[in-house]
Nucleic acid binder design. Structure first.
Length: 671
RNA sequence: GCCGCCUUAGCUCAGUCGGCAGAGCGUCUCACUCGUAAUGAGAAGGUCCGGGGUUCGAUUCCCCGAGGCGGCUCCA
């Protein structure tokens, strides 16, 4: 005679027969749509088939939540792996975790997957889903797991890792704080890392058809996957290290409904339409001629106009904020980078040396050594500090061929770079005002959703003392925290000379980009023996702050281009106004209007081509020109123009003076 | 750098199971002079990414290289 147990189900008290599962308890409580449960608050997520104990507190996890989707995607990854092993027997398994917006699984197949393979795998997955296979959890001993997985070398390796001290037990959630870090590989925690070793069997009609090492939890059955699709295959290093063999990774996505999946795929399509490389060609902004070399852009007149507007505004704001402008060469003798430490710590990021006049010359990958020489060009007084040296400095970095990506990852780019020299007493205030300055300026360009990242010392690649790193890191941390923005740690992400705060900005479709970087550096002033004379006559060492707001102008350009989907606000638009005559007879009149606008600094063109007026409107619309001024007989008679705006609205018969004022006002207010 | 895929007119792409290559857009010319997203007609434009190989013959098949795309590693 089983006794009843007392439960709390989604905060409501319930009683149930002993042996009741989480799924049954949720059903009895009328809770629908759950894919798993969280037991007793902080404990790991568990399957619905988990048998409950007296006093258990059960919290349902709906599919349409972050945790729920992760479980769904993890189950979809299992289905994919089963499909792959069905179709390609002998393919061994790597790891298969859920990731943001999808999942992947790594395989070691005999040959790489082709697009046709992916289609076949997806079809096989559909069959598996239709079969309503049950995911059955099974706890096994380490020895049994090894025996069952004898043919899976990578899984065996994971089992070995899971036995290290401190592994297991500490992990509470597939969405927890980077559980994979414990195993040194993202996603590995979804295979192992729980308090016990578990396998998941796929069972259909009582027969076990597939098994995988897995921590779970999973959906009850494969049929519970509402929507999935495979996206692409690519290579990935086993356990994330290029020293390890490469596996073939297949990416897919899965969603709680077909509509949700469709919406996701539409978001991807929108991101593709906004791709700055596509828009750059469509809008005639820049290109990457093969003749010049990979990762090296040329800006066309329209791209140049946008850059000019971006840079001019930045220049003005920096002058207002007390910066002084300097200029330095692109190339230097190797000695400079020996002094700075770049040749020791950054050589692989630099273009190879050139032999000149019996010495070695290098293209500069950073501007800081040059600015240090400006500082050192004469004796400095404490009265000059903080000394803020600014330059649009073009740098060249040898990026490996596979990583070059449009304007966001180039081999030559221009930093809006400044180095601030100040005393230790000044650095906190300087950093605080700098962060405010950064966020305000980014806001002026239309980005206003930020978080911060704190990159700390790489235990291998660094110069300077532990004490200085500690002080620099804590100073940056407290300044960042005082900003009120979210602060995300980035262990080991610092440059070799000092820790940094980076400002991450979210764009119009929710993607984040690293923009500004602020680095605090005690090391380079030491290496360059930079000094100033203090009020008491002693020689003191300044602190150096490296900072770039756009990061790189090219990257910032790309981010804005994608953020605005090519429709720059009027002040940045390469062509701000296009004059469109109804007939040839109106061209001269429009030219006069254009002359008036140009005299006010407006970038204006008159379309005097042979096209019909409708075609000209279409052309200007596709070029995303903010203002079209259309002129026919009525307008000429009234001394007016007719606006057509980028949003298709219009405003007809506006007197010329009022039209000019409207445009100038829009540009000057940076709307 | 590694893995896979790709490279045909200025752009986007067809195509040739190995037999001297096509469309749309763009460009140019001519006609049309038109009130808010494509007027019509005509023309020009290609060592089919580069080099080597196989073949009677290569844009097509093979190898090497360059560039691009998607990932991995790395990063502004």
């Amino acid at each position: 005679m089983p006794e009843d147990i007392r439960l709390t189900v989604d905060a409501q008290p319930h009683t149930a027969a002993a042996g009741t599962t989480a799924g049954e308890a949720l059903a009895a409580a009328g809770v629908k749509g759950a894919v798993a449960v969280r037991l007793n608050e902080l404990a790991p997520m568990r399957d619905l088939s988990t048998v409950l104990d007296d006093g258990d507190v059960v919290e349902s996890i709906p599919m349409a939540t972050d945790d729920g989707r992760s479980i769904l995607r993890h189950s979809a990854a299992h289905v994919m792996a089963q499909a792959v092993q069905d179709l390609f027997p002998g393919t061994s398994l790597g790891i298969g975790p859920p990731i943001t917006d999808g999942f992947y699984y790594d395989f070691a197949p005999e040959r790489p997957f082709t697009p046709e393979d992916l289609a076949a795998i997806e079809k096989r997955m559909t069959d598996i889903v239709r079969q309503r296979q049950h995911f059955r959890r099974r706890v096994v001993s380490d020895a049994d797991a090894r025996a069952e997985l004898a043919h899976e070398p990578f899984k065996l390796e994971l089992l070995g890792l899971s036995q290290g001290p401190g592994s297991g037990g500490a992990l509470s959630s597939a969405e927890g704080a980077d559980p994979g870090a414990l195993l040194g590989v993202e996603g590995a925690a979804s295979e192992v890392g729980g308090p016990e070793i578990t396998l998941y069997d796929n069972v259909v009609a009582g027969e076990q058809v597939w098994t995988d090492l897995c921590r779970g939890p999973h959906l009850p059955t494969t049929r519970d996957i509402p929507a999935f699709t495979l996206l692409r295959s690519a290579a990935a290093y086993w356990r994330g290290s290029e020293k390890n063999p490469q596996l073939q990774r297949i990416y897919g996505t899965a969603w709680e409904s077909r509509d949700a999946q469709k919406a996701y795929l539409e978001r991807q399509a929108e991101a593709e339409r906004r791709d700055h490389r596509r828009l750059g060609a469509e809008l005639d902004l820049f290109s990457f001629p093969d003749e010049i070399g990979s990762g090296l852009a040329v800006f066309h007149p329209k791209g140049g106009a946008v850059r000019l507007a971006m840079e001019d505004y930045s220049r003005r704001k920096h002058l207002d904020a007390g910066y002084e402008f300097v200029n330095t060469p692109h190339i230097t003798k190797g000695q400079l980078f020996e002094t700075s430490g770049h040749l020791d710590w950054y050589a692989e990021g630099m273009f190879p040396k050139m032999a000149v006049d019996g010495g070695d010359y290098y293209l500069k990958p950073m501007n800081c050594p040059m600015h240090n020489l400006v500082f050192r060009s004469r004796g400095r007084s404490y009265r000059e500090l903080p000394l803020r040296l600014f330059e649009f400095g073009t740098v060249y970095r040898y990026e490996k061929s596979g990583v070059v990506h449009g304007l966001t990852r180039a081999r030559g780019f221009t930093q809006d770079d400044a180095h601030i020299y100040c005393t230790r007493e000044q650095m906190r205030d300087e950093l605080t005002s700098l962060l405010t300055f950064v966020l305000e300026l980014l806001g002026d360009y239309g980005l206003d959703d930020f978080y911060l990242e704190l990159s700390t010392k790489d235990p291998v690649k660094f110069v300077g003392t532990d004490e200085d790193w500690e002080l620099a890191t804590e100073t940056l941390r407290s300044v960042a925290e005082a900003s009120g923005l979210a602060l995300v740690p980035d262990p080991g992400g610092a440059a070799f000379y000092g820790p940094k705060i980076s400002v991450q900005a979210r764009d119009a479709i929710g993607r984040t980009w690293q923009m500004s970087t602020i680095q605090l550096d005690f090391a380079l002033p030491e290496r360059f023996d930079l000094t100033y004379q203090a009020g008491d006559g002693s020689r003191q060492r300044p602190v150096m702050i490296h900072r770039a707001l756009f990061g790189s102008i090219e990257r910032f350009f790309a981010v804005l281009l994608e953020h605005y989907a090519g429709a720059f606000p009027a002040w940045l638009a390469p062509v701000q106004v296009v004059g469109i005559p109804i007939a040839d007879t109106h061209v001269d009149y429009l030219r006069e209007v254009a002359g008036t606008l140009a005299a006010q600094g407006i970038r204006v063109e008159v379309d005097d081509s042979d096209d019909r007026m409708q075609k000209k409107i279409r052309t200007a619309q596709k070029q995303k020109v903010p203002f079209m001024l259309i002129v026919g007989d009525d307008d000429v008679a009234a001394g007016a123009v007719s606006f057509r705006y980028r949003d298709n609205s219009q405003n007809n018969g506006v007197p010329i003076a009022a039209a000019v004022e409207e445009i100038v006002e829009a540009v000057n207010s940076r709307r």
